[in-house]
Each structure stands twice: as structure tokens, then as C-alpha cells.
Design a protein around this nucleic acid. Structure first.
Lengths: 218, 218
DNA sequence: ATACTAATGTGATAATATCACAGAAAAGTT
DNA sequence: AACTTTTCTGTGATATTATCACATTAGTAT
């Protein structure tokens, strides 16, 4: 456990031996299957979630089921919003679901809170995490407000390409729609267009990227 | 100056006498006329801007001129994003313009930075400010993605009503459009609709709210 | 009174969202 | 294999919102 925490938390070396001990004892391993909703607007405060290995999508949703993705957590990413309950003036909530089988370490709320209050390095880290997520969210807002759907879809395809490191994406139109906050039909029609233009090759549940340069230029 | 700072900055009482002295000496009064662009994406880092009296609109914009408002700063509000340059992992930029004649105090970047590094109360305050702006921005994203334009416009009218404390708004369709990230014509048409429904009474440069309850229910 | 500017009005068209299905492909069942 | 069921994709019709292009009107300045 200690090695795991050390590799994920940049402030580890700045903790006292006593602090290290406490965190190590109280932190818990959690394993979740792909497709699990691990946090919702209504769920209680977990504490700090550290992804060891896997992928988590963080998104907001509306009453009638539509959603938009804010950002993703990958190996060694830490989710500060899961700990939002302990943060002053942070008044919104998000949902999280695993997109792969995912291993976490969870540092309970009160343990992290005490670290954050007593250790300046932890506090620095918390702020930089919030900043990072704020930046990601601003990117989404910018794209949503100022870009057209074709450009946003092209960007989303390129993002998934870099996430998986493959030009053969295993993804449905529905999933892309939920990333971008639009309807599935809109994605279907645009992808058909992209295929007609020879940017991609479509098959059920898969999208092969044929020309990423042209996608980038949209 | 000292009284001003004390009334705006909640951490003032937690500063050492030396810190107080430094800040008091280095802080500057600035006065800007209504309608001044006081910060843009490209402008340099100012430091911490504290509004003494006035109103500032914080917004993002695109190349082709459209914009959307993120939040407003009122009396005694403090803008962290003007000091974003000194914050790790905060990678986006905003614009700010005064909507009234506005008095600020500006604490220079390096002075605030040093406070933030050395004083835990300042650091707490910085984080809570970022959280607050993040929350405001999430509200905007939520509205933009999940609400229709009529609802968003109704909310914007109610917001301006509470901002000014009057049911007679001095505001143009153009300004509302820039708040909501849409085109002026869209606002014009919706307002006509609202007037036909007897929710508002329109005249050049003014909107009188006739039925705020019905607006709220949209 | 005249010219100018800012604000508003409006038609036409394009882009996107929404609704309501239909059909195809894969997965599960008997 | 033959079937049922589920998931994914395709598509027309319509509503909403965005964009473009310009006309009109209300205030302001000369």
C-alpha cells in the first residue's frame, strides 16, 4: 500500500512518518468492474479517490437523462471532486463511472481532510488538482459554446485515439453522444458524413480512423 | 487602505503585523470607468483584484466575437483568476470588463504569492475562491447544456433583477445575448414572446419585469 | 431639422435537437 | 439451427436555435 500511495501522491515525501502511517492504515483498496457507476450526485462523500489502474469518466447529467463528459481519470490520476464534500464553497456535483475495470485506493474523507489542514504540501496539491479539473471543464465549456458539432466530434475521436493508443476505436455512437452532450442520431449522421469523406470507416461498435490529419483540420 | 483590506479579505486578522504592513504598502488603488476591458486573455498577470465598489463581468470569448458570461464580481468580491498566472495547473484565460464605474485594490502578484505560500489561512482562502468560481462556471455549463433558451433567458432576467434590486432593467438585447452565449436576434424574438405572454414590458434599452413568478416557472 | 448611431425587428436559411420509428447485427435461448 | 431479445445504427419529420442580411426605429449629436 505504501508504495502505491508514494507513486500516486506527489506530496508523499513531505508527510511525517506518523502521517504516512495513518494514511497507510486507513486507506482502502477498491476494485470496480467496467461500467460501474461509482459516484452520483446523491451519493455520500467518499474521500480522495486515487486511480491505480483503469479509466473513469466524470460527467454531469440532467433529469431527462442527457449527459456531458467533463474529463477522464487515468492511471495515477486523483479525483478531487469525490472529496468535494470536504471543500468549502464547492457547490456542484458530478457522476463517475468506470470505463474499464478499475483499481482505486480511497483515502477516507476525515483522513485526507486532516492531512489537508495540517500539511501545506497537501494543501498545495489539493489546489492544483482543483485547478486542473477547472481547466478541463473550461475546455469543455469553450468547445460546447464556440465550436460546431463536426469539429467537436472530430476532436472527440482524436481524444479517444490518444486515450487508447489505437486508430481502431471500440466505441458506440451513443457513447460519443454522451461525451459531447448531444443526441445519438446527431453523431450517427455526422459519422456517416465523415465516412463519405473517407475520414473514418464505420462498423458496428467500432470506428476506424483513416485520416487523423483531416479530422484535426475540420 | 488597511481598513479596506480588512473588510474585504477574511484572512486579514490571521496575518502577522509584518505581513499586514507589506500588503498595505504594496497594494494599489485602481479606478476604472464603466465599460472598460480590464483583463483579457492576453494581458499580463495583475495579481489579486479586490472589488471595493462596482461590478465586473467575467467572460470567455471566441475568435469571431461571440462570448458567454461566467460570473460577476460585486462589492467586496475578489477575483482569483486575475491571479491565475501564479497558480499551478490553471490553464485557461478569461476576460473581464467593468459594468459600472469600479474601484479596486490590487495586491501585486508576488506579494499575494508570498502570502499564499507562507500563510495557511491565505491558502485556504485561495482554494475556497477557486472553488466558488468553479461552481459558478459549472452552473453556466449545466444551464447551457441542459436548458432551453427560454428558460435561460428567464433566469438571466431574474438574475439581473436581483443584481440591481429593481424590476426595471437597464439592459439591451445585445448584453443579454453576450451573457447567454447566443445571438442578439434570438433574445429579441424570445423577449417579444415574453411580452406577448405579459411577463415583461419592453422599451428601448429597458425591460420591465411584470411577472417574475411566471418567469421563474418557465 | 438633419445626420448619425445604437438598438430593435424580421425574413430566409443552416445547423442542431427531438421524436418516432424501422432495420440490422450481435448475443442469448431453446 | 431457429428463435427471441437486446443493442446498435439509420432515417424521415419536425422543432429549436444559430447565422446572415438587411430594414426600421428611437435616441443623440450637429
Amino acid at each position: 500500500m505504501e508504495n502505491t500511495l508514494e507513486s500516486i501522491l506527489p506530496f508523499w515525501k513531505n508527510l511525517s512518518d506518523e502521517e504516512k502511517q495513518t494514511v497507510t492504515n486507513k486507506a482502502m483498496y477498491v476494485n470496480q468492474k467496467k461500467g460501474t457507476l461509482i459516484h452520483t450526485s446523491s451519493s455520500e462523500c467518499l474521500g480522495l479517490m486515487c486511480v491505480i489502474k483503469g479509466r473513469v469518466r466524470v460527467f454531469i447529467n440532467s433529469q431527462n437523462g442527457s449527459e456531458i463528459t467533463l474529463y477522464r481519470l487515468l492511471d495515477h490520476d486523483v479525483c478531487v471532486l469525490s472529496a468535494s464534500c470536504m471543500m468549502k464553497n464547492l457547490n456542484f456535483s458530478v457522476n463517475m463511472e468506470t470505463e474499464e475495470d478499475t483499481n482505486f485506493v480511497i483515502i477516507p474523507k476525515n483522513v485526507y481532510q486532516s492531512l489537508d489542514e495540517n500539511n501545506i504540501f497537501v494543501k498545495n496539491y489539493t489546489l492544483s488538482l482543483v485547478n486542473e479539473r477547472f481547466s478541463d471543464t473550461m475546455w469543455v465549456l469553450n468547445q460546447y459554446v464556440f465550436s460546431n458539432m463536426a469539429k467537436r466530434l472530430a476532436d472527440a475521436l482524436l481524444l479517444h485515439m490518444s486515450l487508447t493508443g489505437s486508430d481502431e476505436l471500440t466505441i458506440t455512437h451513443e457513447m460519443l453522444a454522451r461525451d459531447l452532450g448531444t443526441a445519438r442520431e446527431v453523431i450517427t449522421r455526422l459519422l456517416k458524413q465523415f465516412q463519405a469523406d473517407n475520414f473514418v470507416l464505420l462498423s458496428r461498435g467500432k470506428i476506424k480512423i483513416l485520416d487523423s490529419k483531416k479530422l484535426l483540420k475540420i
